[in-house]
Design a protein around this nucleic acid. Structure first.
Length: 404
RNA sequence: GAGAGCGUAGCUCAGCUGGCAGAGCAGUGGACUGUGGAUCCACGGGUCGCGGGUUCGACUCCCGUCGCUCUCCCCA
């Protein structure tokens, strides 16, 4: 056991893992650019209240998963547990609503949640999130979910996209009541946690995994049957558009999200392989106003980078690697060859091992080089280098005149 | 917050009902100082997670502790 170790739930990404991590980020960012999302670089720390107000006081994230601390003036700050709250705060603070009719923003970076680590769950993890502010049109929801679908299929990951509508200020209270009444009837079957949730946050009972709760909730009234005209219309338009786009989706009337700010559309992309959520999001039409901005409908999603890259099988092969091998008193000449090759855009490793040709070829092999560039006295004097193909073993003489 | 499993070489792991700490891979060196890949030979490498207990003797048994992994809760 080493004397110093990384903190629980905080990990180093090395070699292949780091490459996969980058591959996922790069792909998603390329996609976001095609949809014309603009990057916003956000702080990792916000005032605690930003999260309490947006995520919701009663949620697990706020109640027990935040890295919260006081600064020197005694103000409560927190490491961000998710990105939307900060994005909304920035949108309001910088009055982005005054610049364009609507805004499409994305962010990436680490998020922090103080919970027990396990497969696909870390205390520091990374998300790439995107938010659209300022449009209530269901076509926006469709575009966002389409984007999620494209990301998944380009990464070659199998997942089902589940969607639901959880209504708005107008219709949700009625549903809540109806659901509560149903839950009271089946009280006896509910687990301990759900008994507590029943009055505080009855919707959450819907996606409890305890078998008896699932049973109890089977015949519960469904939100979709209680939607007001506006929400019903919104939801059916969304489905219509998704179908037109050939985005496969599955309606899940029990899909509820753990954050309070959601309204209308919610969705989740669940890995068929691992059963964990890869990408999730939804509409949050009151949050901007809640954080002090003008009434502004919005929708967004967040992709869990670790969860995506851990499922990645293969990544793009890298550029072929050249190793320049000087043997004898020819380092000065070798340096010029290295410089010239790199200026041609080639990926070049100069051998840092002072040894004979044999040892250095071994090294080139270990580092996975495609080509070795052999440089001895002969090459230096003759003004050339010997290019060796490490796969075929063939060698060619390449004339070389150092640029001045 | 609740539960389970595991900590032995850089890595993967053996090590029996207590009796000298092991293998494979990796690494380093070498007949070969201008030719590599699964050729051969040699070598280095350990607080057996840590602390205590039982014992003539503990990697092994017991207690504690720390760490890792996984599951539940919840979530990306």
């Amino acid at each position: 056991m080493p004397e110093f170790q990384s903190v629980r739930g905080f990990h180093d990404l090395i070699g292949e893992e780091a490459k996969k991590f980058r591959a996922v980020c790069d792909l998603i960012k390329r996609k976001l650019a095609l949809y014309n999302f603009e990057e916003i670089v956000l702080p990792v720390v916000e005032f605690l209240e930003v999260f309490q107000r947006s995520i919701g006081e009663a949620t697990d994230i706020v109640q027990k998963e935040m890295f919260a601390f006081q600064d020197k003036k005694g103000r409560w700050l927190a490491l961000r547990p998710e990105g939307t709250a900060g994005a909304v705060r920035a949108y309001v603070q910088n009055r982005l609503y005054a610049i364009k009719p609507y805004a499409k923003l994305f962010y990436e970076g680490p998020m922090f949640r103080h919970e027990r680590p396990q497969a696909g769950r870390y205390r520091q993890f990374h998300q790439i999130g995107a938010e659209v502010f300022g449009s209530i049109e269901p076509v926006v929801d469709a575009e966002v979910i389409h984007l999620v679908h494209e990301i998944l299929s380009e990464l070659n990951l199998k997942a089902v996209i589940e969607i639901n509508s959880i209504g708005c200020k107008v219709c949700r209270p009625d549903y809540r009541e109806a659901l509560k009444q149903h839950l009271n009837k089946v009280e006896g079957q509910l687990c301990e946690v759900c008994l507590d949730r029943k009055d505080r946050n009855p919707l959450r009972v819907l996606d409890c995994k305890v078998p008896t709760c699932k049973e109890a909730v089977r015949d519960a009234p469904k939100m979709v049957d209680f939607l007001c005209n506006e929400c019903r219309e919104h939801y059916s338009k969304l489905k219509e558009y998704l179908t037109a786009l050939s985005v496969p989706f599955q309606e899940n009337p029990h899909l509820v999200r753990g954050l309070d700010y959601y309204t209308k559309t919610v969705f989740e992309a669940v890995s068929t392989e691992l059963g964990i959520t890869l990408i999730a999001g939804g509409r949050y039409d009151y949050l901007v106003e809640e954080l002090g901005g003008p009434p502004t409908p919005a929708i967004g999603f967040a992709a869990g980078v670790e969860r995506l890259y851990m499922l990645l099988k293969e990544i793009q092969p890298e550029e072929p690697l050249y190793m320049v091998i000087p043997f004898g008193d020819v380092v000065d000449y070798a340096l010029l060859v290295v410089k010239a090759l790199r200026s041609e855009g080639k990926r070049v490793e100069l051998s840092y091992k002072r040894a004979g040709l044999k040892k250095q070829l071994e090294l080139a092999n270990k580092l996975g080089c495609r080509y070795a560039v052999l440089i001895g006295e002969e090459e230096k004097e003759g003004g050339f280098y010997t290019l060796k193909d490490m796969e075929t073993g063939q060698q060619v003489r390449v004339e070389f005149t150092p640029a001045l």
